[in-house]
Design a protein around this nucleic acid. Structure first.
Lengths: 359, 359
DNA sequence: CTGTTAGCGCTTTCAC
DNA sequence: GTGAAAGCGCTAACAG
């Protein structure tokens, strides 16, 4: 017959709710609600609520609000992996762009291996996000299609996936690779190799294709093994570069088509003892920061990552808006906006890592 | 007298709810709920719910569940800024560690400048996170104290803030700096400078103190301006290094005490034309990846970032658990667990960027 | 402008 | 085992 045990181990968090404000002010719940939604209130009531709220340390419960209104003012950002500067930059850019409009961001990693396919998407949907901005992994393409079909706005970044329609902002990948090739060809290189990623990723395939295309346009031969493909990891970059260097006819210039691969290639180059650009010319991808720190500064293809994020955020914001009655024409029947596909160009930042080949 | 306008512009998302499952199965809401919570059900009913759910594409609504249960199985991760590899690594590590326990993560940036102080914390609290893991900015220390006081578990990373108690995992910052000093001193340097951060950030102050302390222990003089402090930005690193190099008695060795500062210092060094280590010795901080790519490889103080994240996640998980009845003793009255303070050591990875000074 | 009322989708006693 | 009913914290009609 002990005292009833304390309710729960952890004390009531922020048990402060409209009810408490109600008791302290004598106002009705709906009036209080109006206060927190910026609706007009009699001045005296305004301050009453205001003071009660700050005294009690009231904080609106977003969950309850979202449940009721059926919109969370939150978008999900879905990325294949988190530990990667490109993705980081995407998060940061989106977060900044959206938080100005009072929209929150919850990030989620698809975590290729474990976890059911699509689990990440489901979890976001279960959080009632108002939309999803994704760098889609093959892994959760199907689920993305499903939620998109149900009317959840989806904005794709960096990659496209078959069967999934929606707004997208992507790089002109072929062009990015072509710029790199032109850069080395202009310096007189003819034996050029690429360290590419897996061809089943849309963006990487685009870059590989662009590479091959550019080589063809310059009437250069692409030997077997001149395009190394492998996973998007530093290790894979190391391995690719090593094997490239071990070739009997070693390329005089190597271009990398992704950040991790660039880092790996540089590590391998570093351990090989070869000098850049005297012994070999090099073009990296997406690692401007690296480039500035290395001597000579590296020629680098850089994506406008921040702009990518901002454009994606813009597309999403447009979908979230209550669709302004377009035109004056009432029957204009614009239908749902057609999907937009924003294509951005990469920029080649020349450095000192590309020079005339010696032989 | 037109038809009632279509309910809403955007079609009903995932209008699938228990009610729908109820209609399709004839079971009661509570039975359906039991299914989704793993409680025992008659086999026939189990499959009934199962098939209905997959046919309709049902997804449980986490928001509603959280509202009802008063726990979201989500922790907030609060960072001063997002675009920084250390913080990225923290996010990735926590996300990975926690998602195994089915706990979600929502990240938030304190965004020093605009936004009210503490807005980020409030927003997390409003999402009913079960706890907050934070690299606290001065900006939101007060709010953190407040929510912590209300019983929300808070785990601090990297920095401590006055008046805020809670679990924490931090670096032995003084030791990190001391290791760097010892490293260069062992190579015979006596004129050593540090590029430090703002002393009002706990971790950076610890590193500066450690630097000064180590210098003293080695009976070395610390000239005025031998410790440069400034904001944690690449630009500030550039400026600090430049001004160090412009000194009449230029230091023979420079140690950096943070990642951004390291990058900035290297950029300045690069443009100065000085050679590492022939003209100047250098120790960087936290940029192992950089170090591998640069020739010579840089001596580097590296934090165990991944372990930091994992330990923080562990501390949080412990607070979230329903406190196992500790001991066999029923009346043991352990009280709330005392706060834990995990202190991790940085590691000095020697490279080729430190050599005997010439003069 | 304010109050009453009925839920949002889910969990949880409490009877059966 | 299962179902009926109450309610988490909030908003949105609708009267007054």
């Amino acid at each position: 017959m002990s005292e009833p045990r304390a309710r729960a181990v952890r004390p009531g968090r922020s048990p402060v709710t409209y009810k408490d404000l109600q008791e302290h002010t004598g106002l009705s719940l709906s009036t209080i609600s109006k206060y927190f939604n910026g609706l007009p209130l009699r001045e005296s009531n305004r301050v009453a609520v205001e003071t009660a709220a700050s005294e009690l340390g009231y904080r609106v419960n977003t969950l309850a609000r979202s449940l009721r209104t059926q919109r969370s003012r939150t978008v999900g950002v879905l990325l294949p992996v988190l530990d990667n500067p490109f993705h980081l930059s995407i998060i940061a850019g989106i977060e900044a762009a959206l938080s100005d409009s009072g929209v929150g961001v919850v990030v989620s990693a698809s975590r290729g291996a474990h976890g059911e396919p699509g689990a990440a998407v489901d979890s976001l949907a279960g959080r009632m996000v108002d939309g999803i901005i994704a760098v889609p992994a093959a892994h959760d393409a199907a689920t993305l299609v499903a939620v998109s079909g149900r009317g959840l706005p989806v904005v794709l970044i960096d990659r496209l996936v078959d069967g999934l329609d929606g707004d997208a902002v992507v790089l002109d990948n072929a062009d990015a690779a072509r710029q790199a090739v032109r850069h080395v060809v202009d310096h007189g290189h003819r034996r050029v190799a690429a360290i590419a990623g897996p061809p089943d990723i849309w963006s990487l395939r685009g870059r590989s294709d662009g590479f091959l295309d550019a080589m063809r346009q310059h009437s250069l031969e692409v030997g077997p093994g001149a395009v190394r493909s492998g996973p998007l990891t530093v290790e894979s970059g190391v391995a690719s570069m090593r094997s490239l260097l071990a070739e009997p006819e070693r390329p005089t210039a190597v271009v990398c088509l992704n950040y991790e691969l660039t880092v790996g290639a540089l590590i391998a180059l570093n351990e090989s003892g070869l000098r850049i650009p005297e012994d070999i010319s090099f073009v990296g991808f997406d690692s401007l920061e690296l480039s500035q720190v290395i001597k000579p500064r590296l020629s680098m293809v850089v994506q406008p990552t921040h702009e990518i994020a901002v454009r994606a955020a813009d597309l999403m914001r447009r979908r979230l808006e209550p669709q302004p009655e377009s035109e004056l024409e009432p029957g204009a029947q614009a239908g749902p906006d057609p999907y937009q596909r924003v294509v951005l160009r990469a920029e080649l930042v020349p450095g000192g890592s590309v020079a005339r080949p010696r032989d």
